[in-house]
């Protein structure tokens, strides 16, 4: 089902959590709402679910105005951050709850067979009689998902779905959720503060800050062409290098970068650690190595420039550098923004 938000806003007491957000989610799409805490992403998700009512604007499900429809009639599947499983019910009872309380009557056998089907789909076979306290975090997450899917929701909403899990379990579940999404084709929207999760999982990423959408697009679009300093720094580790722009290029010492969209004057080059190189000879920004951090996939250098600014570079493991060594930083690519 297609979902449309028109100029939706929400204020809690004096805090303006969401400020006039308009957004369209196509049927069958998987969209990430990405932003730091307090950016309004969870509030937007809860308003789509009907767990909060907006102060202004409209929420449309297909062609119906769902703004005032209460959550129990909205037909959404909601996966809570802490899963919110019913602790006194078994896994099977949790999954069957929505079908049991639904207005459309189903026979016990119908419910049982659907529960079994979902247990299989979620790779939870054999766990139906356990209580939530007796299974692992990753299993609980899948029970929460199965419970939400059991009522055939028109849209699936997930609030920080992997927040409470170990890094390894998180990556597995992420890939698996993507597979489930492709299998079921259900419109899905999830909230996360983890940019890697958003880029890994979503068809489209909506980046929020202070209650506004700052950029939206495919993972490629937001990664390659971030439209602001906020988006660039939020999406990953960023070095900020002061520069000046002259006639379409940014200049730092002897380094020139194309900057077609910047106006003449003071600017900043934002570059990822991987976009910087370390050379023993000039030209480049003269710097001294402060720390060397070795990692399985390379080595990170923390260097200090003559202007006492710290830069971080990801270089190949073969690059020779030791603490105290001097050399030159060159910039392979970067985003230029006027200050």
């Amino acid at each position: 089902m297609k979902i449309k938000l028109e100029d939706v806003s929400k204020t809690f007491q004096t805090f303006r959590a969401v400020r006039g957000v308009s957004l369209e989610i196509e049927s069958g799409e998987m969209v990430a709402l990405l932003g730091p805490s307090g950016s309004g992403k969870t509030t937007i998700l809860r308003m789509i679910a009907g767990l909060e009512y907006p102060d202004g604007g409209h929420i449309l499900f297909g062609d119906t105005d769902a703004t005032r429809i209460p959550v129990r009639e909205r037909g959404v599947g909601f996966v809570f951050q802490n899963y919110a499983l019913f602790p006194h019910m078994t896994v099977a009872e949790n999954i069957g709850f929505g079908m049991k309380v639904s207005k459309t009557k189903r026979s016990k056998a119908e419910i049982a067979s659907r529960v079994n089907e979902l247990l299989g789909l979620m790779r939870l076979d054999g766990l139906g009689n356990r209580f939530p306290s007796q299974i692992s975090g990753g299993q609980r997450q899948r029970v929460a998902l199965a419970r939400a899917l059991a009522v055939d929701p028109t849209v699936l909403l997930l609030d920080e779905p992997f927040g409470a899990l170990d890094a390894n379990v998180r990556r597995d579940l992420r890939r698996w959720l993507r597979e489930i999404h492709e299998e079921l084709g259900i419109t899905s929207l999830f909230v996360t503060h983890d940019q890697e999760e958003a880029l890994d999982l979503a068809d489209r990423v909506v980046i929020l800050n202070e209650g506004n959408i700052v950029q939206q697009g495919t993972p490629e679009e937001v990664s390659r062409a971030p439209n602001s300093r906020f988006v660039t720094t939020f999406l990953g580790d960023t070095n900020r290098i002061p520069a000046s722009v002259h006639d379409g290029s940014a200049v730092v010492g002897e380094i020139r970068l194309p900057a077609p969209n910047a106006t003449n004057g003071a600017a900043e080059i934002l570059a990822r650690p991987r976009d910087l190189d370390w050379q023993s000879q000039g030209p480049g920004i003269a710097a001294r190595v402060l720390r060397v951090i070795d990692r399985p996939d390379g080595r990170r250098l923390v260097v200090s420039t003559d202007a006492e600014a710290h830069l971080e570079l990801d270089v190949a493991p073969e690059v020779v550098a030791s603490v105290g060594a001097t050399g030159f930083v060159t910039i392979r690519r970067g985003q230029v923004f006027n200050i």
Partner: peptide, 24 residues
């Protein structure tokens, strides 16, 4: 959020009271 989950699954206030809150 346990009550909200029950609501999102379509439970009426009375059902939630009887099947979720009172047992807990």
């Amino acid at each position: 959020s346990i009550e909200e989950a029950a609501q999102s699954l379509g439970g009426s206030d009375w059902t939630i009271m009887r099947k979720v809150i009172l047992p807990l």
